[in-house]
Design a binder for these strands. Structure first.
Lengths: 213, 213
DNA sequence: CGGCAAAGTGGCACAATGTGCCATAGTGAC
DNA sequence: GTCACTATGGCACATTGTGCCACTTTGCCG
């Protein structure tokens, strides 16, 4: 898609951001977010506290990159989908694509996400981050979905579709995190999410059936 | 339902809590949550800062009571619904009941909610509170819904139903807040929410149709 | 190579948040 | 009226998050 704005400096910034995120995730999972100070995260990440707050606007925000990776890819895929394709079909195959890891790196990404979600079940601060990520995703999805909607659909339907899609993904991930946070079988995520998506969207006031071209 | 644990002290506490909540809502709506200090809210509410933090665990939390009033009533109604009634039907009439104000006081409550939601569209901190309220509502709804589910339903379906219901209510309120935050016509809320609810739930793997007893 | 502009980094000070602790005032039961 | 109990307020404190300035590194161009 896009792979060129990678100056050496930019890459190092991505690296330190991820480094901080993983350090924070580890500490938060171990002791709970409340018992970890920003100074501690910064120190273990090899940066000054002031620098930490240049990368993230709050202590909890540090783990956000680990939760948004999938969502960002998803939005990009939806935005790049064939405009003539049925919206529901496009959402289905993008959901499937995002939740079907194709290499070890993608599996690792999902494992970080599920691990954090598992820790979030007993940590209010982490739940906040997760909800914020999902809410942002829903808003973002509305923007990329708007051009792909059939012309006669109402604004309400657009909102409902975005909410249904993000809810389906969110619930599939939350359920997986509670059942098997280690993601022993990475292939179960997509079917669960698709099942949820179809149940939530089959009643929407859209093109009669996903079988239409 | 319950009306007796009202000692004089308890009532005064409720009053000051509401007083603080409305003061905070007014200040937040005027200047944005970031530009208001906890000291200011406390002072204008006639309490000390330390007391403010005994009522609310954070500055933003102060407005939560204005957003949860409806949700709390809703959960109570669902929990008290006829166990033999179809779950979808029970949710429909409780949604309708909560969003159909029956007196001036209930209209005022909804106006405070919509006013805050309107302010939240341009205030990240208020959005966080709103999302937290909705997330809590979804979890709470799962608990009160669980006993009313048909025996053969899966845990995933329960999650989806709770998510669909809270999303329907949330989106109806958000849309109303953007269009008409003054709630000139209080009767439009319920139909919108019911429409959204039916669209999101008609595809769920539940009792075939709401016409079944 | 030398040097210069731009951006990343760190240190410091500071307002503000949120909590523990103790003293005081108000309430309710007897 | 006394006495326990609870709400409230004041104070100190660790922590958060930001503005400001100095320093270092990076990238670029003569």
């Amino acid at each position: 898609m896009n792979a060129e704005p990678l100056s050496l400096t930019e890459r190092r910034k991505r690296d330190t951001q991820l480094e901080i995120a993983r350090t924070a995730a580890r500490l938060f999972s171990d002791r709970g977010a409340a018992a970890v100070t920003a100074e501690e995260i910064a120190q273990q990440s090899g940066v000054a506290v002031r620098t930490f707050y240049r990368y993230f606007s709050s202590k909890e925000d540090a783990v956000a990159p680990l939760l948004t990776i999938g969502a960002d890819q998803w939005h990009a895929l939806v935005a790049a989908a064939d405009p003539d394709e049925n919206v529901l079909a496009a959402l289905e195959h993008t959901i499937s694509a995002v939740l079907t890891p194709r290499n070890a790196e993608e599996i690792e990404g999902l494992r970080w996400t599920l691990g954090l979600l598992h820790a979030a079940t007993s940590d209010a601060a982490l739940q906040h981050v997760w909800h914020r990520v999902n809410s942002d995703s829903e808003v973002q999805l509305r923007s990329v979905l708007a051009p792909a909607m059939p012309t006669e659909t109402t604004p309400l339907t657009l909102r409902l579709l975005a909410a249904a899609a993000t809810s389906a993904l969110r619930i599939a991930l939350e359920a997986s995190a509670e059942i098997d946070r280690t993601l022993k079988d990475p292939s179960v995520l997509a079917p669960h999410a698709l099942d949820a998506f179809r149940q939530l969207t089959s009643g929407l006031d859209l093109a009669p059936a996903p079988s239409a071209s």
